[in-house]
Design a binder for these strands. Sequence first.
DNA 1: CCATTGACGGAAC
DNA 2: TGTTCCGCCAATG
Length: 102
Amino acid sequence: MNLSFFAQVYEIVGCIPEGKVASYGQIACILDCPRNARVVGWAMCQCPPDLPWFRVVRSDGSLANKDFYELQRVMLEAEGIPFLPDGSIAMETYQWSPDFQA
DNA sequence: CCATTGACGGAAC
DNA sequence: TGTTCCGCCAATG
């Protein structure tokens, strides 16, 4: 498992089921590196087309860049995750429970 | 090898 | 309560 954080992040994100979301810090925590939240986000920037990056949101339940906000919003709504009038999602309800099966 | 960047997180103001 | 700043780590140039 000498995969870079990069690859590990891909593994975690790829394990997120539909209708669920995970925060960058949560993924970093799964990797046992809660401070790598930024690295996770950076890995998402390199997100391959196979990666459901749209299921990854901020700890606040809000999205990141405006450019991706609308796209992410559409993708999440398509997954069955409604957006609050606040512009964020009820991550408390939709946050994915990591099973450590990565 | 050094400097910069980056789709974050939390603490400070 | 909202906004701003710093810190953190890895990858790229």
